[in-house]
Amino acid sequence: MVKEYSPVKSAVTASQVAGELYRASLIARQLSLAAKNSQAVVHRAGSRVAGLKVISEYFADLALKTIKLAEDINTISLDISQMAVERWRLNTLIGHLFDSQEKNANDNVEQIVQDIQTHQLELNNRFNVEIRKLESQLEEIQQYMQASRVIAVSFRLEATQTDEYQGILDDMADNIDVFSEKIKQHVIGAKNYIDRLLQS
Protein backbone atom coordinates (compact mmCIF):
# COMPACT_ATOMS: atom_id res chain seq x y z
CA MET A 1 0.00 0.00 0.00
CA VAL A 2 1.44 3.36 -1.07
CA LYS A 3 1.46 5.94 1.65
CA GLU A 4 -1.05 8.74 1.30
CA TYR A 5 -0.07 12.09 2.77
CA SER A 6 -2.70 14.57 3.86
CA PRO A 7 -3.58 16.58 0.75
CA VAL A 8 -3.97 19.73 2.85
CA LYS A 9 -0.47 19.38 4.28
CA SER A 10 0.88 18.35 0.89
CA ALA A 11 -0.50 21.46 -0.81
CA VAL A 12 0.93 23.73 1.87
CA THR A 13 4.30 21.95 1.84
CA ALA A 14 4.65 22.17 -1.93
CA SER A 15 3.78 25.87 -1.81
CA GLN A 16 6.30 26.42 0.96
CA VAL A 17 8.99 24.67 -1.09
CA ALA A 18 8.07 26.79 -4.11
CA GLY A 19 8.41 29.90 -1.93
CA GLU A 20 11.88 28.90 -0.66
CA LEU A 21 13.08 28.12 -4.17
CA TYR A 22 11.71 31.37 -5.49
CA ARG A 23 13.83 33.19 -2.92
CA ALA A 24 16.81 30.94 -3.73
CA SER A 25 16.48 31.75 -7.43
CA LEU A 26 16.62 35.48 -6.69
CA ILE A 27 19.92 34.96 -4.88
CA ALA A 28 21.14 32.67 -7.66
CA ARG A 29 20.76 35.65 -9.97
CA GLN A 30 23.10 37.64 -7.72
CA LEU A 31 25.48 34.70 -7.72
CA SER A 32 25.42 34.69 -11.50
CA LEU A 33 26.20 38.40 -11.53
CA ALA A 34 29.15 37.74 -9.22
CA ALA A 35 30.31 35.06 -11.63
CA LYS A 36 30.16 37.46 -14.57
CA ASN A 37 32.15 40.03 -12.60
CA SER A 38 34.75 37.45 -11.76
CA GLN A 39 35.13 36.60 -15.44
CA ALA A 40 35.66 40.26 -16.21
CA VAL A 41 38.34 40.58 -13.50
CA VAL A 42 40.11 37.45 -14.65
CA HIS A 43 40.06 38.78 -18.17
CA ARG A 44 41.56 42.11 -17.10
CA ALA A 45 44.20 40.54 -14.89
CA GLY A 46 45.26 38.23 -17.72
CA SER A 47 48.30 36.07 -17.02
CA ARG A 48 48.67 37.32 -13.43
CA VAL A 49 45.70 35.21 -12.36
CA ALA A 50 46.03 32.53 -15.03
CA GLY A 51 44.92 29.82 -12.64
CA LEU A 52 41.50 31.41 -12.27
CA LYS A 53 40.42 31.43 -15.87
CA VAL A 54 39.08 27.90 -15.91
CA ILE A 55 37.58 28.24 -12.46
CA SER A 56 35.73 31.43 -13.22
CA GLU A 57 34.27 29.85 -16.35
CA TYR A 58 33.20 26.88 -14.32
CA PHE A 59 31.70 29.24 -11.76
CA ALA A 60 29.68 31.14 -14.40
CA ASP A 61 28.35 27.84 -15.69
CA LEU A 62 27.51 26.62 -12.20
CA ALA A 63 25.63 29.84 -11.40
CA LEU A 64 23.48 29.49 -14.52
CA LYS A 65 22.78 25.86 -13.71
CA THR A 66 21.76 26.89 -10.19
CA ILE A 67 19.26 29.44 -11.50
CA LYS A 68 17.81 26.89 -13.90
CA LEU A 69 17.53 24.18 -11.28
CA ALA A 70 15.99 26.52 -8.70
CA GLU A 71 13.40 27.58 -11.28
CA ASP A 72 12.74 23.97 -12.26
CA ILE A 73 12.16 23.00 -8.64
CA ASN A 74 9.85 25.96 -8.25
CA THR A 75 7.79 24.78 -11.25
CA ILE A 76 7.66 21.18 -10.04
CA SER A 77 6.53 22.29 -6.58
CA LEU A 78 3.73 24.33 -8.13
CA ASP A 79 2.64 21.21 -10.05
CA ILE A 80 2.77 19.15 -6.89
CA SER A 81 0.74 21.72 -5.02
CA GLN A 82 -1.89 21.69 -7.75
CA MET A 83 -1.97 17.89 -7.68
CA ALA A 84 -2.47 17.95 -3.93
CA VAL A 85 -5.36 20.38 -4.26
CA GLU A 86 -6.96 18.11 -6.86
CA ARG A 87 -6.55 15.12 -4.56
CA TRP A 88 -8.04 17.19 -1.76
CA ARG A 89 -11.11 18.07 -3.82
CA LEU A 90 -11.53 14.42 -4.80
CA ASN A 91 -11.27 13.34 -1.17
CA THR A 92 -13.98 15.81 -0.24
CA LEU A 93 -16.16 14.60 -3.08
CA ILE A 94 -15.65 10.94 -2.11
CA GLY A 95 -16.65 11.81 1.44
CA HIS A 96 -19.89 13.37 0.21
CA LEU A 97 -20.59 10.40 -2.08
CA PHE A 98 -20.11 7.99 0.84
CA ASP A 99 -22.59 10.07 2.84
CA SER A 100 -25.07 9.88 0.01
CA GLN A 101 -24.56 6.11 -0.31
CA GLU A 102 -25.21 5.72 3.38
CA LYS A 103 -28.50 7.56 3.08
CA ASN A 104 -29.57 5.76 -0.06
CA ALA A 105 -27.27 3.25 -1.81
CA ASN A 106 -27.26 3.48 -5.57
CA ASP A 107 -25.30 1.42 -8.14
CA ASN A 108 -24.58 4.39 -10.37
CA VAL A 109 -23.04 6.29 -7.50
CA GLU A 110 -21.06 3.18 -6.58
CA GLN A 111 -19.55 3.20 -10.09
CA ILE A 112 -18.69 6.89 -9.82
CA VAL A 113 -17.02 6.25 -6.46
CA GLN A 114 -14.89 3.49 -8.00
CA ASP A 115 -13.82 5.67 -10.91
CA ILE A 116 -12.85 8.49 -8.61
CA GLN A 117 -10.92 6.14 -6.37
CA THR A 118 -8.92 4.90 -9.36
CA HIS A 119 -8.13 8.47 -10.26
CA GLN A 120 -7.18 9.22 -6.66
CA LEU A 121 -4.79 6.28 -6.63
CA GLU A 122 -3.12 7.49 -9.82
CA LEU A 123 -2.81 10.98 -8.44
CA ASN A 124 -1.38 9.71 -5.20
CA ASN A 125 1.22 7.59 -6.99
CA ARG A 126 2.22 10.49 -9.19
CA PHE A 127 2.43 12.69 -6.13
CA ASN A 128 4.78 10.25 -4.39
CA VAL A 129 7.03 10.02 -7.46
CA GLU A 130 7.18 13.79 -7.87
CA ILE A 131 7.97 14.50 -4.25
CA ARG A 132 10.92 12.07 -4.39
CA LYS A 133 12.11 13.77 -7.55
CA LEU A 134 11.91 17.07 -5.74
CA GLU A 135 14.04 15.70 -2.92
CA SER A 136 16.79 14.57 -5.26
CA GLN A 137 16.77 17.93 -7.05
CA LEU A 138 17.18 19.70 -3.73
CA GLU A 139 20.08 17.39 -3.02
CA GLU A 140 21.61 18.37 -6.35
CA ILE A 141 21.34 22.09 -5.74
CA GLN A 142 23.02 21.60 -2.37
CA GLN A 143 25.92 19.91 -4.13
CA TYR A 144 26.17 22.89 -6.45
CA MET A 145 26.51 25.11 -3.42
CA GLN A 146 29.28 22.96 -2.03
CA ALA A 147 31.10 23.26 -5.36
CA SER A 148 30.65 26.98 -5.22
CA ARG A 149 32.28 27.15 -1.77
CA VAL A 150 35.27 25.32 -3.26
CA ILE A 151 35.43 27.99 -5.95
CA ALA A 152 35.55 30.65 -3.25
CA VAL A 153 38.53 28.88 -1.70
CA SER A 154 40.35 28.91 -5.05
CA PHE A 155 39.73 32.64 -5.39
CA ARG A 156 41.19 33.25 -1.95
CA LEU A 157 44.24 31.13 -2.71
CA GLU A 158 44.86 32.96 -5.94
CA ALA A 159 44.36 36.30 -4.21
CA THR A 160 47.34 35.70 -1.93
CA GLN A 161 49.54 35.42 -5.01
CA THR A 162 48.61 38.68 -6.68
CA ASP A 163 49.04 42.21 -5.38
CA GLU A 164 46.93 44.36 -7.57
CA TYR A 165 43.87 42.10 -7.59
CA GLN A 166 44.05 40.77 -4.07
CA GLY A 167 41.26 42.99 -2.70
CA ILE A 168 38.90 42.32 -5.58
CA LEU A 169 39.45 38.58 -5.49
CA ASP A 170 38.97 38.45 -1.74
CA ASP A 171 35.74 40.42 -1.99
CA MET A 172 34.59 38.10 -4.71
CA ALA A 173 35.31 35.06 -2.62
CA ASP A 174 33.30 36.62 0.23
CA ASN A 175 30.40 37.25 -2.10
CA ILE A 176 30.41 33.72 -3.41
CA ASP A 177 30.43 32.41 0.15
CA VAL A 178 27.57 34.62 1.28
CA PHE A 179 25.33 33.88 -1.71
CA SER A 180 26.03 30.15 -1.62
CA GLU A 181 25.28 30.02 2.08
CA LYS A 182 21.99 31.89 1.63
CA ILE A 183 20.90 29.58 -1.17
CA LYS A 184 21.88 26.59 0.93
CA GLN A 185 19.73 27.86 3.81
CA HIS A 186 16.68 28.14 1.54
CA VAL A 187 17.31 24.64 0.22
CA ILE A 188 17.61 23.31 3.77
CA GLY A 189 14.38 25.10 4.62
CA ALA A 190 12.67 23.44 1.67
CA LYS A 191 14.03 20.02 2.65
CA ASN A 192 12.79 20.48 6.20
CA TYR A 193 9.29 21.20 4.95
CA ILE A 194 9.35 18.01 2.88
CA ASP A 195 10.78 15.95 5.75
CA ARG A 196 8.01 17.13 8.03
CA LEU A 197 5.43 16.06 5.46
CA LEU A 198 7.04 12.66 4.85
CA GLN A 199 7.23 11.98 8.58
CA SER A 200 3.61 12.92 9.13
Partner: peptide
Protein backbone atom coordinates in the same frame (compact mmCIF):
# COMPACT_ATOMS: atom_id res chain seq x y z
CA UNK B 1 -12.15 31.30 -6.56
CA UNK B 2 -11.40 27.68 -5.83
CA UNK B 3 -9.79 27.26 -9.27
CA UNK B 4 -6.93 29.64 -8.45
CA UNK B 5 -6.46 28.50 -4.84
CA UNK B 6 -3.22 26.59 -5.37
CA UNK B 7 -1.65 29.45 -7.37
CA UNK B 8 -2.68 31.90 -4.66
CA UNK B 9 -1.25 29.78 -1.86
CA UNK B 10 2.09 29.37 -3.62
CA UNK B 11 2.31 33.02 -4.56
CA UNK B 12 1.53 34.24 -1.04
CA UNK B 13 4.15 31.93 0.46
CA UNK B 14 6.80 33.55 -1.73
CA UNK B 15 6.46 36.59 0.51
CA UNK B 16 5.26 35.52 3.95
CA UNK B 17 5.08 32.29 5.94
CA UNK B 18 1.69 30.64 6.28
Amino acid sequence: GIEIFSSMLSTILKFIPI
